[in-house]
Amino acid sequence: MSSLDLSSNAEPRFSSVAEVRRDLERVGYFADDGLAGVVYLADRLGKPVLVEGPAGTGKTELAKSVAAMTGARLIRLQCYEGLDESKALYEWNYKKQLLRIQVEQGAGWEEVEENIFSEDFLLTRPLLEAISAPEPVVLLIDEVDRVEIETEALLLEVLSDYQVSIPELGTVVASQIPLVFLTSNNTRELSEALKRRCLFLHLDYPSVERERAIVLAKVPGITDQLADQVARIVRSLRALDLKKHPSISETLDWARTLVLLGIESVDEETARSTLHLLLKYRSDIELAAKELAAATSAAAEPGR
């Protein structure tokens, strides 16, 4: 096993779930207890968090916010197809090495070799950077479902032992376990081994209260009433049978536009003319416009 104690000894970062939630809110991220709880457990158990959920529900933002609230540096590994060890972990700077060899012509090979395989010639990539950082860091491995299975195995290795071995240099062991977030849009089933290693967090659309809070915090100049209306309309839209439901980013875009247009209160007309900011498909927009204007059964009843 590794030389690092993976669970207990290190000083815990948070004293309670409520504290996590409060601190996240301080940096502008609104969590519920489930979400804050998983972050809390990630610290206590020394485990990475695999965050999954529909687009635009705050997966990436979560990692950024945790970094901000703990005062840690965010190190981001953006995944893509074809990402390999040399871009994820480290690579030798061979151009620099070649130059050095040319400069040192005449010196013995052993000496040169010693020289060119030293840290000066190492290009550190995000994973190694996170492991070797002396200061606190949060590692974000974004859109991990895009990498090939082999690269995933490499990630797993690093996330199991929090160490990296470089044949020419030796093993680099993390001085502290970083908080690690992996995000996935679920375009591919990740390996069982990686999932077993992680805590799983499914991010879904927030409650009205939480979405209203997000809108209030992120949209300058919006009134309580408009934020409330925006959150409620979006909730009602998500209850409809649509091809694609609006995400939090789309809610925010819509709210910003309403403020720019100087709208104080949304009515059917405003909704109809701006729905394309929330919904992508024409048929969704049509259905939503119809639904929002419809006085439904109970409301239509003269039940006074």
Partner: peptide, 26 residues
């Protein structure tokens, strides 16, 4: 392990702790 770090009487907390450790697919 996870539920050891949370108040046992908090049913919601137990639920997300178990969810995060035992359920790895939506």
């Amino acid at each position: 392990d996870a539920i050891g770090h949370l108040p046992l009487e908090d049913r919601q907390a137990i639920k997300y702790a178990l969810g995060a450790t035992l359920v790895k697919s939506s």
